[in-house]
Amino acid sequence: MLRLPPFRYLAPRTLSEATRLLAEEGPAAMPVAGGTDLLPNMKRRQFTPAALVGLRRLHELKGISGSPEVGVRIGAGETLTSVSTHPLIRTHYPALALAAAAVSTPQLRNAGTIGGNILLDTRCNYYNQTEFWRHSIGYCMKRDGSICLVAPGSPRCWAISSADTVPVLVVLQARVRLVSVRGEREIPIQELFRDDGMRPYTRETDEILSEIWLPPAPGWRSTYLKLRRRGSFDFPILGVAAALRREQDGRIGDVRIALGAVASHPVEAEEAMAHLRGQQPTPALLQEVAALAAKRARPLDNADLTITYRKQLTPVYVRRALDLLLGAEQGSGAK
């Protein structure tokens, strides 16, 4: 049986105690919430922290409150199950409910948190392997090695941003709050990400992601489509989040499209959005928009199925997401 490496476990009772512990312990300590991402990674020795700072008991990280008019606050420690089933989110931010419900399995959603999903370690099938396997192939730069095994000539790591909720939070224009002994900062969620598989987050090691703010959502419709092989367990090999608002006359008032699992960070399809904004949607236009969005997808051979396939499916999924938001009568259908 694969087992965890030894560590000390610290159990703060308040958020400020937690931030203090993280600061004291330094980068060798890691926070753990649901543990559904961290613990398997630790069993594979992708992480061997000297100490874990448990966030489970922190009431400051709990709660979902607000309204579609003023926006909604989600404690980062809320489980994916509670996010996906909360009436406020199901009704007014359906894409987030869909994405949270699409993560892995019921058991993992019961333990895993929204904060943990946002900060999911980037994934790569050269990296998410046991210590034995990584030793066997000679390790990669993300842990214990010096090169990228996917693109050996590359100076950077190409591990994939694989969190289902992230592209959705991007299109919802969520903001996140980070807390440390040094203070607090609230940033647009996009600013949390860096285009680097090795250090994919701007979160400092002493910071705790404490809550997520969703802005008011009047008139917005949103959805999330996930490509994976099986109905559960699997991480996305493509995630498409889309949100839009239509004008009275049917034109697209505003639209946001973000792609997950196509790069080391969530990718916003700006060109595609600009092409659709203010337009009357037609099947031909949606095809163009989908093709523009797909230009942003640059998958590599480090996840399930082939690069070509994942690339080919991107415009199909973007168009289907837009079709869903525009209602069945707008369906642009098959070629």
């Binding site: 159990a11 753990v32 543990g35 613990l39 448990g54 993992l108 019961n110 333990a111």
Partner: peptide
Amino acid sequence: TVLLDGVPVLSCLTLPLE
């Protein structure tokens, strides 16, 4: 799988201390 306060979770990813 075990139940934690009636909710299914995975005991292989649960720390007893928590």
